[in-house]
């Protein structure tokens, strides 16, 4: 199944996410032109807040090269994989870019830098299927919670609360798709909302009143809603 294959690839991408602390040091190479974090503004280069999921060359108020705008118009979006390609050799992605940077060949450093930048992009891109998750709290979850076997019939009933907003058949305009997620990703994501490690008021509220068993039931149902 296409969806399942896609999820596997994403799970792998998540595992390859680097070390954000180390990435902060790598970012020193970028600081001359780019700002990131609270109050970041466009300078020589565009600011890098909310980078994940952004269409290349789309930031209002920044004058991009033609080459960059063209790349954006033809569908280039910033995610871990596209950023990695770009950082490895910027001109291979946008030949006429004004970013005078020879590229970062070291794969680990690239992953670290991307993990660091990921800290400044949050919802709605902050979902496992879209991008690796920035906050490294995923693995702090009690193994007992992860091991819970959910009841898919109960999950099917509970899911009706989700499908008021998240389309039962997928579709992710404005609100992400939640169908066919790997069970564990689903559990981790909902607990991250429940524990207020992810920032979305509706999801914090909804997840906040779900018990561990209910989260497991939903995960069991949404892994394969058929």
């Amino acid at each position: 199944m296409l969806a399942a294959a896609g999820c596997a690839a994403m799970a792998q991408a998540a595992e390859e996410l680097g070390d954000a602390e180390a990435g902060k040091k790598v970012f020193n190479e970028c600081k001359g032109c780019h700002q990131v974090g609270p109050g970041a503004e466009n300078r020589v280069g565009p600011h890098l807040n909310g980078l994940f999921g952004r269409v290349a060359g789309s930031l209002e108020g920044f004058r991009y090269s033609k080459s960059f705008r063209r790349a954006g118009n033809s569908g280039l979006e910033w995610h871990a994989d596209s950023l990695s390609d770009f950082l490895k050799n910027p001109r291979s992605v946008a030949s006429g870019t004004r970013m005078s940077y020879r590229g970062l060949k070291d794969e680990t450093k690239r992953a670290d830098l991307i993990a660091y930048l990921r800290l400044f992009s949050d919802s709605p891109s902050d979902i496992p299927e879209a991008d690796p998750t920035a906050i490294g709290t995923d693995h702090g979850l009690d193994p007992g919670i992860l091991a819970l076997q959910g009841d898919p019939e109960y999950g099917a009933y509970l899911s009706s609360e989700c499908t008021t907003c998240h389309q039962a058949e997928g579709g992710d305009e404005g609100i992400p798709s939640i169908v066919y997620w790997p069970e564990e990703d689903f559990v981790v994501a909902l607990h991250a909302y429940k524990n207020k490690q992810r920032n979305h008021p509706v999801m914090q509220m909804i997840a906040g009143r779900l018990s561990n068993e209910e989260i497991a039931a939903l995960a069991a149902y949404f892994e394969d809603p058929e």
């Binding site: 919802s123 709605p124 009706s160 499908t163 008021t164 907003c165 998240h166 389309q167 039962a168 058949e169 579709g171 992710d172 305009e173 404005g174 609100i175």
Partner: peptide
């Protein structure tokens, strides 16, 4: 803006529900 976009997503969700 994200909140507005979310409402557009919700509209698609609830009407298909």
């Amino acid at each position: 803006k994200a909140t507005y976009e979310e409402s557009v997503g919700w509209y698609a969700g609830i009407t298909s529900d």
